[in-house]
Design a binder for these strands. Structure first.
Lengths: 110, 110
DNA sequence: TCTATTAATCGTAATATTGCAATAAACAAA
DNA sequence: TTTGTTTATTGCAATATTACGATTAATAGA
């Protein structure tokens, strides 16, 4: 039925999945990498850099903004985007905790 | 049109997105957390633990197996699943490198 | 052999995602 | 005010994902 049954999972599991989902598209990965790389706000050149149509980029930016990972500031006719450092750090902690689970070397059966 | 234009992104960007996508569903997060928690192979009790139908769990397991994050061993009529440690570590390195990008505190505009 | 158990596969319905053309909105500058 | 520039929104088509009933396959045990 195409609909995720999020109600049967914990808040933490849903949160991890929500963050992961937004990284599940290479355009959004590329946008974030660019924002980190140029080390300042980006005003408008994302469309030419990524290579997708302007409405498509705008949609991807919206998803990143909804999760709070980036923020945009209006500068005249253009909008400047940058990483939201606090929220990124919070997300990073949650994701790394998930990735960093560890288990002892004993009691392995495969 | 519902199809990701992966050809315009780098191999690394596509790899990050592929790993992230598999974590983008809470059932798969829950499966992996359970495999880490019980610290040994799981033979069949995943359906009752997660709370989705057996074909649905089987489908999620298949996606995790396709990416190499888990492996299954046949034990009679049941199959035992566990984390593939080597591949998990490889994935972890790739994902943490992405999450851990950093940028200097200077030259910020927002 | 027959039956029960377990997991995979098939088929299908419902919903979500991706991408873009067309358009709108907001503002700067002439 | 008009024109150009930039970004957001709308609407839609194509494809992907999620979920599960029905079925199949494989094996253990009676």
């Amino acid at each position: 039925m195409g609909i995720t049954k999020s109600e049967i999972f914990t808040l933490q599991q849903n949160e991890i999945a929500t963050f992961a989902k937004v990284f599940g598209h290479p355009a959004r990965v590329a946008i974030l990498q660019h924002l980190f790389k140029i080390n300042t706000c980006v005003c408008g050149d994302l469309v030419s850099i990524i290579g997708l149509a302007q409405p498509t980029i705008s949609q991807h930016l919206k998803e990143l903004k909804n999760l709070g990972l980036i923020k945009g500031t209006i500068e005249g006719t253009s909008v400047c985007y940058c990483i939201d450092k606090d929220n990124w750090l919070n997300m990073k902690t949650i994701m790394i905790t998930f990735l960093d689970q560890d288990y002892s070397e004993t009691d392995q059966c495969c």
